[in-house]
Simulated assay, not measured.
Amino acid sequence: MKLAILSRNSKLYSTRRLVEAGRQRGHTVRVLDPLRCYMRIASSGFQLHYKGRSLAGYDAVIPRIGASITRYGTAVLRQFELMGTYSPNPSDAILRARDKLRAHQLLAAQGIDLPVTVFGDNPDDTSDLLSMLGPPPHVIKLNEGAQGAGVMLTEKPSASRSVVEALRGLYASFVVQEFIGEAEGADLRCFVVGDEVVASMRRQAPEGDFRSNLHRGGTALHVAATDEERAVAIRAARVLGLGVAGVDLIRAKRGPLVLEVNSTPGLEGIEAVCGVDVAGRMVEHLAIHAEQRA
């Protein structure tokens, strides 16, 4: 298999592990900076070039596209797709997952439970909007934030209104959600590859914070997901069209709730905590599907 990995930095742990896993299994692997890829689009066909040379003949591509380059990165990925290259996470699926509001609408429409979420645009509607959610605490999230950035907790109605008004003044896109107190600052990351949860870990927020992201100082422990949690994680990834996903769940009294579906989940934390060759599982999944398309 001829495999491309779209990544801005070949030295990142996740990128290095995918290269290593691919080459160990006898595949040809190349890391491509998506911002150095450029394309020709015509009814007669599609072309991709990289640093002056043509890119063609790739069987599969793994997108490791950061949030800051979503628009251009997904355009490059779409060009690969139009040229017949398989991706476990198609460009449109990444765009669905990156937009928290859209993702929540799609998940809820399929009966997947998540924290109650409200969204509105007009300042005149703020009080009624918050009343639709219920009393605080409230969690306010930027619509395209990542790794816990742009996530705030408000504990009084006046604080919620103030944050909402401030974000509207900055023309930011955001959602407001119910706070799940019984989770006690913990969530469950399920790493989905195809139709299987290949690894899972419980992440705990540091003292004084409610965000459990490892990038924010959270700690992690290997914890086996229940059958119900695995089923929810796999369904959530499938609804958004993702073959590889990090699905974050909260263990609430009413059952597992989907917090977020990450289309570019990091490998370092979960491989270290769980001792699972997640990169290898991703490459094996790719090889099977690329061969089926050949």
Results as ranks from 00 to 15, higher is better:
residue 151 V to S: 09
residue 121 D to I: 13
residue 121 D to L: 15
residue 98 R to D: 00
residue 123 P to S: 02
residue 127 S to K: 07
residue 142 L to Q: 03
residue 115 P to G: 09
residue 95 L to K: 08
residue 140 I to M: 10
residue 152 M to R: 12
residue 144 E to W: 00
residue 147 Q to H: 11
residue 85 T to W: 00
residue 113 D to G: 01
residue 87 S to A: 09
residue 135 P to Y: 04
residue 106 L to V: 05
residue 85 T to L: 00
residue 91 S to Y: 07
residue 98 R to E: 00
residue 132 M to F: 12
residue 98 R to F: 00
residue 151 V to I: 14
residue 105 Q to W: 10
residue 131 S to E: 15
residue 98 R to S: 02
residue 137 P to K: 01
residue 128 D to Q: 13
residue 127 S to Y: 02
residue 98 R to M: 00
residue 100 K to E: 01
residue 115 P to N: 11
residue 116 V to W: 13
residue 113 D to M: 11
residue 153 L to D: 10
residue 111 G to Y: 09
residue 88 P to T: 02
residue 116 V to T: 14
residue 110 Q to E: 15
residue 93 A to C: 03
residue 139 V to P: 05
residue 135 P to V: 07
residue 112 I to S: 05
residue 89 N to W: 01
residue 148 G to K: 05
residue 115 P to F: 12
residue 95 L to A: 06
residue 127 S to Q: 13
residue 119 F to H: 15
residue 97 A to F: 04
residue 126 T to K: 06
residue 130 L to Q: 08
residue 137 P to D: 08
residue 139 V to R: 02
residue 95 L to M: 07
residue 133 L to V: 07
residue 106 L to C: 05
residue 104 H to M: 12
residue 136 P to M: 07
residue 128 D to T: 12
residue 90 P to W: 03
residue 122 N to S: 14
residue 146 A to M: 13
residue 122 N to Q: 14
residue 151 V to H: 08
residue 89 N to S: 07
residue 153 L to P: 07
residue 101 L to D: 09
residue 103 A to Q: 02
residue 101 L to E: 13
residue 131 S to D: 14
residue 89 N to I: 03
residue 92 D to R: 14
residue 100 K to F: 06
residue 118 V to H: 05
residue 93 A to S: 08
residue 125 D to C: 06
residue 94 I to E: 03
residue 106 L to Y: 06
residue 144 E to H: 05
residue 109 A to P: 10
residue 102 R to S: 09
residue 134 G to Y: 04
residue 151 V to L: 12
residue 124 D to F: 11
residue 101 L to C: 04
residue 96 R to D: 11
residue 87 S to Y: 00
residue 102 R to N: 09
residue 152 M to Q: 10
residue 90 P to M: 06
residue 109 A to L: 10
residue 113 D to F: 11
residue 122 N to F: 11
residue 144 E to C: 01
residue 121 D to Q: 14
residue 127 S to R: 14
residue 89 N to F: 07
residue 97 A to R: 02
residue 134 G to V: 07
residue 106 L to N: 03
residue 150 G to S: 08
residue 125 D to I: 02
residue 96 R to Q: 10
residue 140 I to G: 07
residue 123 P to F: 02
residue 109 A to S: 15
residue 139 V to S: 04
residue 111 G to A: 11
residue 107 L to G: 12
residue 95 L to V: 12
residue 121 D to E: 15
residue 122 N to M: 12
residue 91 S to Q: 05
residue 131 S to V: 10
residue 131 S to A: 15
residue 110 Q to P: 03
residue 149 A to K: 15
residue 102 R to M: 14
residue 85 T to E: 00
residue 112 I to E: 03
residue 108 A to C: 10
residue 100 K to A: 01
residue 136 P to Y: 06
residue 106 L to K: 05
residue 112 I to V: 15
residue 93 A to F: 01
residue 103 A to F: 07
residue 145 G to W: 04
residue 102 R to C: 09
residue 136 P to D: 04
residue 109 A to D: 14
residue 96 R to V: 04
residue 95 L to S: 03
residue 114 L to C: 08
residue 97 A to V: 06
residue 95 L to I: 08
residue 134 G to P: 11
residue 116 V to Y: 14
residue 91 S to I: 02
residue 93 A to T: 01
residue 88 P to C: 03
residue 145 G to P: 01
residue 113 D to V: 07
residue 91 S to N: 04
residue 133 L to F: 06
residue 119 F to V: 15
residue 135 P to H: 08
residue 96 R to W: 12
residue 134 G to H: 10
residue 153 L to T: 08
residue 135 P to C: 01
residue 150 G to W: 10
